[in-house]
């Protein structure tokens, strides 16, 4: 198995002096799905955003297929188009119809023609089961539908790795299912992905590997079975606090 993504000793200190990430290192292999879990403020989202440099890491290396991407000389727009990202709050372009949301990147980054891009867009919309709403505006979609369109938008760029930043946190419980089903479908197809999530059940069922982060460091990581048999006290406390909530 080849490494798609390599993160070596990543640090991030915010402008206010908050040291959010303190030396995180891990690899992601081809076709692997990695779940990052942890309590709020543990640095999970910061790690994810540092990977496609929406946040510049203060120190450390991020490599995509062996090439260092957090240097000034890397073509950041090309790198980002190869890494799909799905946001907690969807971030659909509200002034564009669903189909135009998806073709925007294809037309202006991949430089496809209008027809070609629309054909591509219809394909990914079918994959996320949103074909019948292709002409709707995002404002008229439900949360689950929006998130599936957001996934389709990232998928359309044919990324080498997908980053999910708490994709279900902003959704009502009854809408979560359709989004998780879509992500699970992608994992089954062999899409390489990193999912930051609070859905412990989902992490256990779908992820090949689980990383537990606490206070900016990786406290425990391993096969998804660690959720059932946590080795460290910190993970145990975290899991029990979550089950209490349920």
């Amino acid at each position: 198995m080849s490494n798609v993504l390599t993160i070596v000793d990543m640090h991030k200190t915010y402008a206010g002096g908050v040291h959010a990430v303190r030396g995180v290192s891990f690899d992601v292999n081809q076709g692997e799905s990695v779940a990052i879990i942890g309590s709020s403020g543990s640095g999970k989202s910061t790690v994810l955003r540092c990977i496609n440099r929406l946040i510049e890491p203060t120190e450390g290396e991020v490599r995509l297929r062996g090439n260092l991407i957090n240097t000034p000389s890397a073509d950041i727009n090309d790198v980002r188009s190869r890494i799909g990202m799905v946001f907690q709050s969807f971030e659909l372009f509200s002034h564009l119809r669903v189909i135009d949301n998806i073709t925007l990147g294809l037309r202006h980054v991949r430089k496809m023609g209008k027809k070609e891009a629309e054909a591509e867009a219809l394909e990914v919309l079918e994959k996320v089961d949103m074909l019948d709403r292709k002409d709707a505006f995002p404002g008229n979609l439900s949360g689950g539908q929006k998130q599936r369109v957001a996934i389709a938008r990232a998928l359309a760029m044919k990324p080498e790795v997908m980053l999910f930043d708490e994709p279900t946190s902003a959704l009502d419980p009854e809408l979560i299912g359709s989004v998780l089903k879509t992500i699970r479908g992608l994992a089954d197809e062999g899409m390489t992905m990193i999912v930051v999530t609070h859905e412990i059940g989902f992490a256990r069922d779908v992820a090949d590997r689980v990383i537990y982060m606490d206070k900016g460091v990786i406290a425990e990581s391993g096969k998804s079975s660690i959720i059932d048999n946590p080795k460290t006290d910190r993970l145990k406390r975290f899991l029990s606090s979550i089950s209490e909530e349920d």
Partner: peptide, 10 residues
Amino acid sequence: QMEAGRSIGL
């Protein structure tokens, strides 16, 4: 919105 735009490579 800016992050989303940048994340697809614009």
